[in-house]
């Protein structure tokens, strides 16, 4: 029998760091219910927190008039999350690698690097104000293998 529980949802939240706590809790609960591995849940939690902080700080620049839209779909095999802010966007390719040279001593600049490290897939829209992240359920072993 098909579950009546919705797999996806879209939520609009304020541009402050505590605003996503409830929706992040809901996403992580759904992942637990779908029996994602603990490491997957930790990884998505980290990616989500970092993406949200980036949207609040760098995207909306803490402007209380601007919102962040979080859209998510949690299926047994994978979790997909998109965060869109109302900022001007940015060019993800221009962000320096925080592990190279003196960058390692910089106070900030590790958020996107961690998102790339922990997520299985990430994509940005053309403007650069919307990030979509995918984490596969390791317990289902369905992660696409890289092409040779």
């Amino acid at each position: 029998m098909l579950s009546k529980e919705p797999v996806g949802c879209s939520v609009v939240v304020e541009s402050k760091s505590s605003a996503a706590e409830k929706v992040i809790g809901q996403i992580l609960s759904k992942m637990k219910a779908q029996k994602f591995a603990d490491d997957d849940i930790f990884a998505l939690h980290l990616g989500l927190e970092e993406a949200f902080i980036n949207a609040v700080k760098h995207g909306n620049k803490f402007d209380p008039a601007k919102k962040i839209t979080i859209t998510y779909t949690i299926r047994p095999e994978k979790a997909e999350i998109c965060l869109a802010d109302e900022g001007d966007g940015f060019a993800p390719g221009n962000i320096p690698d925080p592990t190279l040279g003196d960058n390692i001593y910089k106070i900030g600049g590790r958020g996107l690097f961690l998102i790339r490290s922990y997520m299985d897939e990430i994509n940005f829209n053309e403007k650069g104000n919307c990030i979509c992240m995918v984490k596969y359920n390791s317990n289902k072993n369905l992660k696409p293998k890289p092409e040779n």
Binding site: F42, H45, L46, E50, Y105, I107, G108, R110
Partner: peptide
Amino acid sequence: QFLSSAVLGLLLR
């Protein structure tokens, strides 16, 4: 049990 990258910045400070 959990921290964000901003904590790493704090540790560097």
